[in-house]
Design a protein around this nucleic acid. Structure first.
Length: 221
DNA sequence: CCCTGATTCGC
DNA sequence: GCGAATCAGG
């Protein structure tokens, strides 16, 4: 696997979007294992794990005993689950666009919307993202500040300060919101080209972003 | 069974 | 460094 700068950027973006590892893998045409492995190596913030942090019967019991002289229950990990649910489960048409394709404002990065969504990824089928719902527009402070530092503060605040009323404004044409560059870095920007009607991306990026439902799952490799 | 993410370890 | 295999919870 050749981890180009482009691919890594997309991985980081999608990861921050809160998409599942499998979903990211589908969009990148790689396995979820590759996604998780790479994310781990990149030091991306861990997602709320469905399993306990303590489980490693991989080594021999001897090694485990030697290396892990666990004394008490003091080892507690306390995940403090952010509960960030993916916006994914992509119907063919809606797919996993960045969480906030405001249709006209490339200024607001899709990255910075840690909005808690209470919807299981795999089972829910209603494809409408609840981005527009101001019900819970409260930034979840569960993530450590150290991890959020990858993005400039103003970039984080911008979407929160924006009333999302620009949707219907025809003044600026819709713009492809395919991310270019690393989110949080000065050079980060969106494609901006004219998107396919009904899609958040231009035709070029649509071809990349949307995958056939048939090919879903990890049978890529 | 399906999904999920984390870790390990041979390459 | 990479990622398949594996683990483990929902």
């Amino acid at each position: 696997m050749e981890w180009t700068d482009e691919i890594i950027s997309r991985l980081q973006t999608l990861w921050q979007e809160g998409l599942s590892t499998a979903e990211i893998g589908r969009q990148l045409s790689i396995t979820k294992n590759a996604v998780v492995g790479k994310a781990h190596r990149l030091g991306l913030p861990p997602r709320p794990s469905p399993i306990r942090a303590t489980a490693k019967p991989r080594k021999d019991a001897a090694t485990e005993a030697a290396a892990a002289p666990v004394a008490d229950e003091t080892v507690t990990v306390a995940p403090a689950a952010p509960q960030t649910a993916p916006v994914s489960e992509v119907k063919p048409s809606v797919a996993a666009a960045p969480a906030a394709p405001v249709a006209a404002e490339p200024v607001a990065p899709p990255v910075s919307r840690p909005e808690p969504v209470e919807k299981p990824a795999a089972s829910a089928s209603s494809a409408v993202p609840d981005n527009a719902a101001p019900a819970a527009s409260k930034p979840s402070p569960t993530r450590k500040p150290a991890e959020a530092k990858t993005m400039s503060p103003d970039l984080m605040l911008r979407p929160l300060l924006r009333p999302l009323t620009t949707e219907t404004s025809p003044r600026r044409g819709p713009a492809c919101c395919w991310p270019n560059g690393d989110p949080g870095t000065p050079g980060f920007h969106f494609c901006g080209a004219k998107p396919v009607p009904g899609k958040p991306y231009c035709a070029e990026h649509c071809a990349i972003a949307y995958v056939k439902l048939r090919d879903r799952r990890e049978s890529v490799g």
